[in-house]
Amino acid sequence: MKKAKYIEEKIFRFLMVLSLILVAGFVFSVLWSIFSKGIPVLTWEMVTSLPGSGFYVGKQGGFLNAIVGSVYIVLGATFLGLLISIPVVFYLSVYLKKDSRFGSIARLAFDVLFGVPSIVYGAFAFTIMIVVGIRASLLGGILVETLLIVPILIRSMDEVARTIPKELLETAYSLGATKIETIGVVIRQIAPAIATATLLSVGRAMGDAAGVMFTAGFTDYIPESLTDKAATLPLSVFFQLSAPQIEVQNRAYAAAVVLTVIILIISLSGRFIMRYFSKNKV
């Protein structure tokens, strides 16, 4: 009897280490497969030029259109997203009482919105765009990515904003400030959270393919106005990979490397900031 429990302990300890190795293996396998395939075929020309003639049968050109398109969409969406989410976070934590019913329903709704798949956002935005008369465009892409990141922004900032000590706000009130005038104090308190949330959502918006598929379309050119179509990096990877020519597929791998590197830099610095600041919190 006594032995059995030690054997069981050993078995499960082994399984745990196995699961750990498995997960680490997955991470390295993903990174290795992308980098080993993509880096040898990645050239400077690819990231600095637009698709040339015969691009989709393997002739010269690059995917600058997708890089710039992605950057435009992400910048626009992040700007709009912050514009919407900062007031909401401020409202939830300053205007509403801690045990407010409306507040908890709103928070739940944002949690649920966070879980809505991006393909559903895409389909929904697409139907709205048809009704309003907007075609697949940079604007459409920006709007759908804004919808996608607002819940992330709100939830991750709110988490921190809720921990702002009440006394801090009361000090401001006692000096005669109105609620809205405490916004400076609140923003200073949640500044690291704003930075992290922004970086996290930039990463999410940059990597999302299903949402922009419907709404931003795809084009070989850099969009010049909000009503132009816009290419995006994930879709560039996806479309090129489904081509039969090896040269085109290789470019998909190269684009995948670019996308991975951008995402890793953005997301990891975001997570680093989060961990760094939450470590020092009481």
Binding site: V27, V30, I34, G207, V237, F238, L259, L264
Partner: peptide, 18 residues
């Protein structure tokens, strides 16, 4: 963190490759 942050399409590429 790396696993959580990689975009869907990258996992797709990995899936087809590995």
């Amino acid at each position: 963190d790396i696993l959580a942050s990689l975009p869907s399409v990258i996992f797709g590429v990995w899936g087809t490759l590995v």
